[in-house]
Design a protein around this nucleic acid. Sequence first.
DNA 1: CTTATGTACTATACCGATAAAGAACGAAAT
DNA 2: ATTTCGTTCTTTATCGGTATAGTACATAAG
Lengths: 358, 358
Amino acid sequence: MARVTLQTIADQVGVSRMTVSNAFSRPDQLSAELREKILAAAEELGYAGPDPSARALARGTTGAVGVLLTDSLRNAFADEVATTFLGAIAEELRPTGLALTLLSASERPEMIPARDVPMDGALVYSCNTQSTAVDWLRRRKLPLVFVDQAPWPGVPSINIDDRSGARLAAQHLVDLGHRRIDIVTTSILGPKGIVDDPISAADGHVVRQRMLGWLDALHEAGIEPTVFQEWHSDEGSGKESANEAAGILLDKPQRPTAILCFSDVIAYGVVQAASARGLIVPDDLSVVGFDDNPLAQRMRPALTTVRQDVAAKGHAAAAALTSAIERSRTGATTRVRHVLLPTELVVRDSTAEPPSTP
Amino acid sequence: MARVTLQTIADQVGVSRMTVSNAFSRPDQLSAELREKILAAAEELGYAGPDPSARALARGTTGAVGVLLTDSLRNAFADEVATTFLGAIAEELRPTGLALTLLSASERPEMIPARDVPMDGALVYSCNTQSTAVDWLRRRKLPLVFVDQAPWPGVPSINIDDRSGARLAAQHLVDLGHRRIDIVTTSILGPKGIVDDPISAADGHVVRQRMLGWLDALHEAGIEPTVFQEWHSDEGSGKESANEAAGILLDKPQRPTAILCFSDVIAYGVVQAASARGLIVPDDLSVVGFDDNPLAQRMRPALTTVRQDVAAKGHAAAAALTSAIERSRTGATTRVRHVLLPTELVVRDSTAEPPSTP
DNA sequence: CTTATGTACTATACCGATAAAGAACGAAAT
DNA sequence: ATTTCGTTCTTTATCGGTATAGTACATAAG
C-alpha cells in the first residue's frame, strides 16, 4: 500500500490537494462541513497530518531549536548547573511549542548534527567559538544566541559577570588576611598542571574572565598565585582531578592558606583533598567555589562561592533566541543585545582568617 | 540576493545539480578534482551544505530522534533519575550521530511537537499510554520504544522489574517485624489523599506495578496498608507534598512503624515529616524508597531503597530505538523485544526493627 | 442592474534536495 | 575488432507539502 499523502485524501474526497492542506493548516479557508468531511476521510485512511519534513521544507520552519553543548551530553546531564540551565530553557520554550534538540559533537564526520539537523535556531552554550560545530551553525545563517561565550558582533549573547564575581571572591580572601592564595582552574585543551602564564593559558571565555577577575584583586594586593589547570575530564565532572590538583598545591613547600576554584565541583574536590591530608576547612585552608551549585549548600562545610542565577540565564537565553528567530522571520533589524547578568558573593563556612603563622 | 542552493553552485561550476549533490553526499561518485572545484565554489558562494529540511524530505531521514516525557521538561531536568536516564541515552546515541530532541506537551494546540517535529523515531518515557502525544507518535508510524510503560504489542519496551523490587522492599519490612506498614505513592491524575482501592487508583504502569509488588508481600503477611496517594506536583519534585502526605499518616491514631515510598524523593519528604514530629528514623519509623537516586546515599540516615540501574535502562532504550529505526529502514521484521531489567534491595540506615510496643 | 466585497475552492509554481536509471567514453577482456 | 566493464556525469522523476494568485458564485451596496 502506498503512503497516504494529502493527494490520497484529496482524491478520495474529490477536492484539490490544496484544500486538504488548508483543512489541516488553515481551517478558516474552507467551510466547516467540508473540513469535517476531509478530516474524517483522513482519519479513515490513517493519515497522521502533514508530513513534518515536507512542511519544514515548504514553510521554512521546523518547530525545533537546537542547543549546542561543548561537553559530551553525558557530562551535561551529570552537571547540576547545566541541567538547571537546560530546564530553564525548556520552561521558557514551552509556551512557544518549540522542541529542544540537543546537539553533540558526534564522532563520525559524515553526520554532524550542527550541520545536518533541521532547526529554526540554536543556542551555543559555553563552546569553543572556533569549534567546527559553531562554524556550521553560523554558516547556515541560523539565528543564534551565545551563552557563556565571548560576545560576537551580530550575535546576541547572554553572559554572567564572571570577572566581577571572581574579583569579589579573591577580594574576600584578601580581606580575611590571606596572602598565600592559589587557584585551581580548568581548561578544555590546554596543558594540565601548574601554568606560568595563567591568562594566556585560559582557553574559553569564562575561564579567562574568571582568571582576570581573580588576578584583578590578587595583583592589587601584591599576591602572585600559583595556578593549577586541571583537565576537564570526561568522567565524574572532574571531582577526582580536582582532588589531585589540590594535592599538588597543598604539598608545595609553602602551602597556600586559601584556594580559589573555577567551580563548586572543583572546590568539592579540593576540600576532599584537604581533608585527606588532615587539614581542616576553613581553619587550615579556605576554599571558594563558583556557580553556587546546589552542591555548595550540601557540602560540609557549606561552601563560600560566587552565585550566578543559572535559571535566569536559561530564561534569558531562550527568550533571546525566540526573539532572534522572530526577527529573522520578519526581517526586522533590532540592535543585537549583549546581556550581562550579575554575580554575587555568598559567604558560607569554607572561608575564614588564615591560620596564625605556625 | 537569492539563496544559494545546489543549483547556484551547479550553474557556477557548469555541471549538473546532481553532481554537486554528489560532491557533498557521495564523494565516490565523482572525480576528486571536480569535487574540489565544486567544494571551492560552494565555499566561495557561502554555501553551508545541503539544506537539512530538503534533505530530510528527499531522504526520508532527519538525523534526530525524539524523547517524549510526561513531565514538563522543567521537572525532568530537576530529577536526578531522569537526567541520568537522558544522559545514558545521549551517550548511547553519540556514536550514531543522532541528535536528541526533547518533546514536551506544549500549551498551544496548533503546535504539537509529537506531531509536528521531524524525527526518525522516538522514545516514550513514562507517559500515559493514552496521552495524545503518544497517539500522534503512533499514528506517524514512527519507530518507537516504550520505557517505563506498559508493554504494548508491536512496540519494543524497556522496563525494570518494579513489582519484584517493591515486593522485596515490603518483605524486608515484614521480616524486620513490622506490622503497621503504610504506603506513600504518587498519581498523575488520580485523587490526592488516602485511597481505598490502591490498585485501581494506580494510574500509570510503574505506579501500579510497584503497588502490586508491595501488596504481594504485605497481603501475604496479612497486612492491610493505608495508602496515601500524592499528587505529582509541578514543583520541587514533590518533596513538600510527600512531607504533607507523611504528616497525615503519622498523625493517624495508630501510627505506622514503617512507610514504603514510591520514590526516594518522596522518602526524603517522609523522613523530613517524621523529623519534624520528633520521630527518629529508623528507631521510631522505618522508611524505604525506590530508585536508588543519588539522594538516597546523601540522606541522613542513608536510605534503604530499591535500586534500578537507570543508566542501563537508558542505554538499552537508545539501543532498542536505533535498532528499531534500522529495522524500519531495511524492512526487516525481527521479533519485538520486551526487556525487563532487574531491581535489587539496598539496605541502608533508614530501616530497623519496629519500636517495642509503647 | 451594475459594481463592490466576500467566501470557498482550485491552478500554478515553487521549497531544495536525492534516487535510480541512462549516456558517453576510455580501458580491459575475449 | 568486438564485447564488457567501470568511471563519471546527466536526465528524469519524485519527496510531500505550502504560498500566492486566480476563478466562480453569492450577497450587499450604489
